[in-house]
Design a protein around this nucleic acid. Structure first.
Length: 556
RNA sequence: UGGGGUAUAGCCAAACGGUAAGGCAACGGACUCUGACUCCGUCAUCUCUUGGUUCGAAUCCAGGUACCCCAGCCA
């Protein structure tokens, strides 16, 4: 975990907590991250995780991980495991505070009976369609159900029989008896329980009725003693209901809900439905495709937890809808990796270079720094010989103005090795470039000219006989448009056709043959890469490009 | 045309009646054996808008405008 102490930006949640602590409303704070295990976590969840766990940590409180598992029709064990893994990967610990809303089902059930007994809930016989028709619209009040004034005893009897499994799915629901004319739709007698003959991923076949989110969330918070229940903006309209339950039930504590704006990121999509579509249509290779905004994808790509946390810190938190530019996320990884990634030489699109005046058969070894700014990271030896590979982009026969890489007649430095001058090229009958020929300056051993002359360009290389083959996967943004989600149009039309490019014949320095799967490298002058954790092997290394280096040259 | 929210630079975001922080981006320059990194400098007379209160307003008041959320037995 990074120890840099960047000043913590103030935000409205911190202000509220500071105030609550100062005036004694709370002596400690307890937050919670409450995912529904119905899918994999994405970068938007990371914002919530960092907020909840981060706030708790900063103020000396704690944060619970609680699965909001009230809908067995959509939830799976696999998601529970994956979510735990992702939260842990991000660097947060819930310790013993792992909870499931489903563990509170008995208590919730008792509270439902409590509402029935106090005349504040009733069993509804209307169908889903009828309920909808009775609900009214945004501008018209709803109509009361004919079952709204059922006697308490009958409600109790029916509700108990619902629990016993006497009725089929959808035949009845339990509703709160609040106000069918409320301007807040959430208060028009919301459904509390529905009948679902389904096996639950956590509690199995214990229940035939399941509470709705609204009836479970606030009470779960109260049971756990949550002080600050932080959720996204769309739940704001639910707050009056959240509080209605706390007011009308003998709950053990009084949590308070606060809302913040969810994360929107440019050049990607975040909705579960669309992410699902990308996977099922095979547009991407899976939930962990390195282009996906899922935490699994980001992780496989090579992003570090530190970078993601920095990102969440940097974007701040507010209550206005906002779109964060993808470049901020990218900059966060660069910052982290620039600091920690060992440097290495790799050639993605090799072209052959022959140094005509270099002795045939001679092999020299040069000392290359693992991190030029950090001598403590040590160095390694790289082999040099008469035949090398350099980057296709680093050679031009007729360069534009300002090009200071390899070009006929001009000296260029081969990083850590020698200064060379291109003397010509060899082409095949079709005009394809076969080889670039050079002459080297023997007095520039190590890369510095004996006479101190300045060499403008330095390029990376790899010895033909001392490098290993590798596959390199270049990832780019999944969408070509900053807002693929934007209204109306089909987001798929904005898919970036070049979001992945496979380079099957890259050459990397020999030391990378058995590269550690968890090590992120900087391929000098190219970007940051890491071995793909699923496809890479010692025999055939596969590298994922995490992010490019900034490139002020290609921009011009 | 119901209710609930939100408007500060290209993108985020501070400010709590006392004279517009910070980050990212951008632009200029220095340095450089990575066109990277690092470093220096520039970047809102102004806070959606129109009025009002005040010695003083992004902050308070009144009226507009724009955008977001709510009519699942989803969360």
């Amino acid at each position: 975990m990074s120890t840099e102490s960047a000043p913590i930006a103030n935000n409205f949640l911190r202000s509220i907590i500071e105030e609550d602590l100062k005036n004694g409303k709370h002596s400690t704070i307890i937050t919670r991250f409450p995912p529904e295990p119905n899918g994999y976590l994405h970068i938007g969840h990371a914002k919530s995780i960092c907020l909840n766990f981060g706030l708790a940590k900063d103020f000396g409180g704690r944060c619970h991980l609680r699965f909001d598992d009230t809908n067995p029709a959509k939830e799976e064990l696999e998601y529970i495991e994956s979510i735990k893994e992702s939260v842990a990967w991000l660097g947060f610990e819930w310790g013993e505070h792992l909870y499931y809303a489903s563990d509170y089902f008995e208590q919730l059930y008792q509270w439902a009976e409590h509402l029935i007994k106090s005349g504040k809930a009733y069993v509804e016989d209307l169908t889903a369609e009828e309920i909808r028709a009775h609900r009214g619209t945004l501008t018209e009040p709803g109509k009361e159900s004919p079952w709204r004034n059922r006697p308490v005893d009958e409600n109790l009897d029916l509700f108990r029989r619902m629990r016993e499994g006497e009725f089929p799915d959808g035949s009845k629901v339990l509703r709160a008896r609040i106000d069918m004319a409320s301007p807040n739709m959430n208060l028009r007698d919301p459904v509390l329980y529905r009948i679902l003959h389904a096996t639950h991923p956590h509690v199995g076949d214990k229940w035939r009725i399941y509470p709705m989110y609204d009836f479970a969330h606030g009470q779960s918070d109260a049971i756990e003693g949550i002080t600050h229940s932080i959720c996204t903006l769309e739940f704001e309209g639910h707050k009056p209901l959240y509080e209605w339950f706390l007011d009308n039930l003998p709950v053990p504590s009084r949590p308070r809900q606060y809302e913040f704006a969810r994360l929107n990121l440019t050049y990607t999509v975040m909705s579960k439905r669309k992410l699902h579509e990308l996977v099922s249509s095979k547009t991407v290779s899976g939930w962990d495709d390195p282009r996906m905004p899922t935490l699994m994808g980001i992780r496989r790509r090579g992003y570090t937890p530190d970078a993601v946390r920095t990102f969440c810190e940097r974007i701040g938190v507010g209550r206005s809808d906002s779109w964060i530019d993808m470049s901020i996320l990218e900059e966060c990884v660069r910052e982290d990796l620039n600091e920690h990634a060992p440097r290495v030489l790799a050639v993605l699109r090799p072209i052959k270079v022959v140094i005509d005046n270099y002795p045939e058969g001679l092999v020299e070894e040069f000392e290359a720094a693992n991190h030029p700014q950090k001598p403590e990271m040590g160095s390694r030896k790289v082999s040099f010989s008469r035949e090398l590979f350099i980057e296709e982009d680093d050679f031009m026969e007729q360069p534009p103005k300002g090009f200071f890489r390899m070009t006929p007649g001009i000296e260029v430095r081969l990083r850590y090795a020698y200064i060379v001058r291109c003397t010509g090229v060899v082409r095949d009958v079709n005009g394809n470039l076969l080889e670039v020929h050079c002459e080297y300056d023997p007095a520039s051993r190590g890369g510095s000219a004996a006479d101190g002359r300045k060499i403008k360009g330095t390029i990376h290389w790899v010895s033909a006989g001392h490098s290993v083959d590798a596959e390199v996967r270049l990832f780019d943004r999944l969408f070509g448009d900053p807002n693929p989600d934007r209204g109306g149009a089909d987001y798929k039309q904005f898919l970036n056709p070049d979001s992945v490019e496979i380079l099957p014949a890259a050459k990397v320095e020999a030391g990378l043959a058995g590269a550690d799967i968890e090590t992120r490298y900087q391929f000098e002058r190219l970007g940051y890469f890491r071995p793909d954790p699923v496809d890479s092997s010692d025999g055939k290394p596969v590298f994922n490009r995490i992010v490019t280096l900034k490139d002020t040259w290609s921009k011009k």
